[in-house]
Design a binder for these strands. Structure first.
Lengths: 343, 343
DNA sequence: ATGCGTTGGAATAACGTTTCATAATAGGCA
DNA sequence: TGCCTATTATGAAACGTTATTCCAACGCAT
C-alpha cells in the first residue's frame, strides 16, 4: 500500500471483499454486524479516508451545493450564507460559494463554474441582469431555489420576504405619523425585490393620499450617497425617507450627515433591512427586518426536497418582514416628539 | 449517446481518438491545429461539458481550495473571503467555504470535511482551540496558509497584520493625547492575534509609563457589552479604551450608550478593525485598519506557489495596520478639544 | 533510396469508488 | 437429511477522465 489507503487496502486488511467494505461505509443495512465491526476496525487501523471524488464519479452525486450570490459583504446575504452553510453541513452537504457582483456577464461565467463543478443543487440570488438567463442556464437540469430576487414569472421554487407587504406596512407606518410627502430611495427597479418594494410603497401612498417620490439611486453606497445629497438639497424635500436596502441605508446616513440634516426632526428615516449597527447609530434607525433565519430554512427545505426527489410542497414561500421602530421616525410637524420606541 | 455527452462522444463525432480530445481540452501543445479545430467544433456541436470529477479522480487534483474561517459575519473575515474568492476564481480555482464558529470540536469536524473533499489547498483562520491540532490535522499533507491568527511557533506559511506593532502604535497615539490610564478590551488571550495586540499595547504602555488595564471580555458582542458596562461603572475608570477587534467594538459602543458615557469627552475610544459604519457613528470612531486587500493577495500567493510546487519566498508575511483618526479620540483633560481629524 | 530521429495520434491501463448480478451461506420445514 | 427460500457476501463491470506507452508517418541526411 503506497500513498493513501484505499478501500481495497481496507478489504485486504480485514480479509473482506471490496463490495462489502463499500456497503459498510455507505451504511447499507444488509451486512452482518460481525463483518461491519471487522471493516470498521480495519478502517481505524489504516486510518482510512473515503475518497469522495471516486464515489461521486460512480454514484453521480457530489453532496455539494452551490450558493450564488451577488455580494458577500452585503450583511443580509452574508447572514443567509452563514445559516445555509450550517443547514447544509448538518445535512451532510458541502457548500461552494460563488459571488457574481452585479455584472451580468461575470454572473453567467460564474454560474457555469458552479455547473461545471457538478453540484447536486444550487441556491441562487440572481444578480442584476442574470435573472432572465438563469432559466436556460441552470434550473432546467439542476435542482434550484431562487432567493430574495424572485421574478414575477419565475418558474422555480423560491423564497423571499414579502417585499410588497413589508414596504406597504412601512409606508403606512410613515403615513400614520402624519407624513404626506415621502421618498423611497431604491437601487434599481430591474431588481425584483426592489420592484416589489416600490410597488408596495406606492400602493400604500396611493391609499393614504400621500405624495410618492420614487428615487433610483444606484447600486453602490457611494452612488446612493451622492444621489441622496441631491435630494436633500431640493427645495421641496420629502419629510420622510424610506431606503430600499442596507447599502442604500448606508448611503443615506452618509448623505444626511454630510448635509447636516437632523433625524428625525427635519426628516424621518426608515430602512429596509435591519442589522446590528442600526441600533447603535444616533438616532437609532427604525427598520424593516427580513427574517433571514426563516428564509434560509425554507430555501434549504425546497432544495433538499428536490435533491432527494421528494415532492416539493409550497414551492413559493413569502416571509413576513417585521417593522422595528427606533428613534429615526417621528410624527411629522411635532418637532422633537418621538414616535415611541420599543426594543 | 444517452445523457450528457462525454469525451468519447466528442471523439466519435469528430472522428478523432479519445486521447487527442483530452489533450486538446487540457491545452496540450502537441496537437496540430487542424485536429484541435475539429475537436473544438465537435465540442460545440454536442455542447460538451467536461466532467471535472472524472478528471480530478485521474489527475489527483481538484482545482478547489478550502477556506476555513470562524465566522462569515465578522466583517473582516467576510472581506477576506470576498477577495480570496476573486483571486482564486481568476486562477481557475473554486472555493469551498466552511465556518467553524469558535468551538474547537466543531472546528475539527469541519476541517475534516474539507480534507475529505480533497481540496488542493487550504487557507485557515484558526478558531479558538483549533490552532494546536491544526498541524497534525491538515498542514502535514496539504498546502496550507494560516491567516490572521498565527501561533508563535507556527510552522506553516502565514499572513497577518503586524498586530504587535499596530497595537503599539495605537497605544502610543493614545498616550500622546495625554492618557495615562488606558484599558484594552480583548476577546480572548488564547487567540494569537489578540495576544499580540495585548503585548504591543503593554509594551507601549510600559514605555510611556502608563497604566495598562487589560480586560478579557469574551468572544461575543453581548459578552463584551456586559463586561464593559462593568468596567465603565468602576470608580477609577480608564480615560481611554482600546478595543481589540470589531466585535468587541460593537459591544463597547453598546456599553457606552447604555451607560451614558460620552465619547470622547469622558472617555476616548480607539478600535481595532476599521469598517464602513465606524465613520457614520457619532462620534465617528478612530480605528486601526487591517489591510485586507494585501493580506488576501499575500495569502493567495503563498498558497498558489505551494500548490504549483514553486518555491515559497517570504513565507511569513506581516502587513502594517493603519491608524485612522476620527472623532472618538481626544486629548485627555481638555474636554471638548478634538485631537484633529483626517479622512 | 534507405535509415534514423522527431513528432503527433491512437490505444489502453489506471484512478477508487458504487452497483448489480451472482454465488454462498444459513435457516426453516417437510 | 435434503430442499427451498431468505439473507448476506463476492466479483466484476462501470463511471469519464488523464497518463503512458506504442506506432505510424514524415522529413532529413547520407
Amino acid at each position: 500500500m503506497r500513498g493513501k489507503p484505499t478501500m481495497i487496502d481496507v478489504a485486504d486488511e480485514g480479509g473482506i471483499s471490496l463490495g462489502t467494505v463499500s456497503k459498510v461505509l455507505r451504511g447499507d443495512p444488509t451486512v452482518s454486524s460481525k463483518l461491519r465491526e471487522r471493516v470498521l476496525a480495519a478502517c481505524r487501523k489504516l486510518n482510512y479516508q473515503r475518497n469522495w471524488i471516486a464515489a461521486s464519479l460512480r454514484s453521480r452525486q457530489t453532496n455539494t451545493v452551490g450558493i450564488i450570490i451577488p455580494d458577500i459583504l452585503n450583511t443580509f446575504y452574508a447572514t443567509l450564507v452563514e445559516k445555509l452553510e450550517n443547514l447544509a453541513s448538518v445535512g451532510g452537504y458541502t457548500v461552494v460559494i460563488v459571488t457574481t457582483g452585479e455584472e451580468p456577464q461575470r454572473a453567467l461565467q460564474r454560474i457555469n463554474v458552479v455547473k461545471d463543478r457538478l453540484v447536486d443543487g444550487v441556491i441562487v440570488i440572481p444578480s442584476l441582469g442574470s435573472s432572465e438567463t438563469l432559466a436556460s442556464s441552470v434550473g432546467a437540469d439542476l435542482p434550484c431555489v431562487i432567493v430574495d430576487r424572485v421574478a414575477a414569472d419565475n418558474p422555480f421554487p423560491s423564497v423571499a420576504t414579502d417585499n410588497f407587504d413589508a414596504a406597504y406596512q412601512g409606508a403606512r407606518y410613515l403615513l400614520s405619523l402624519g407624513h404626506r410627502h415621502i421618498a423611497i430611495a431604491a437601487n434599481s427597479p430591474r431588481l425584483w425585490n426592489t420592484r416589489e418594494r416600490i410597488a408596495g410603497f406606492e400602493r400604500a401612498m396611493a391609499e393614504g393620499n400621500g405624495r410618492a417620490d420614487v428615487r433610483i439611486v444606484g447600486m453602490t453606497v457611494e452612488e446612493a450617497r451622492i444621489s441622496l445629497e441631491g435630494l436633500l438639497g431640493e427645495r421641496e424635500r420629502p419629510t420622510a425617507l424610506f431606503t430600499s436596502n442596507n447599502l442604500v441605508t448606508l448611503g443615506a446616513v452618509g448623505a444626511l450627515r454630510s448635509c447636516g440634516v437632523s433625524v428625525p426632526h427635519e426628516i424621518s428615516l426608515l430602512a429596509f433591512d435591519d442589522f446590528e449597527w442600526l441600533r447603535l447609530l444616533r438616532p437609532a434607525i427604525s427598520a424593516i427586518n427580513q427574517p433571514a433565519d426563516q428564509i434560509a430554512v425554507e430555501a434549504w427545505r425546497l432544495l433538499s426536497h428536490q435533491m432527494s426527489g421528494r415532492p416539493v410542497s409550497n414551492p413559493h414561500v413569502r416571509a413576513a418582514g417585521q417593522l422595528v421602530i427606533r428613534e429615526s421616525t417621528a410624527q411629522h410637524g411635532r418637532i422633537g416628539k418621538r414616535a415611541g420606541a420599543r426594543e
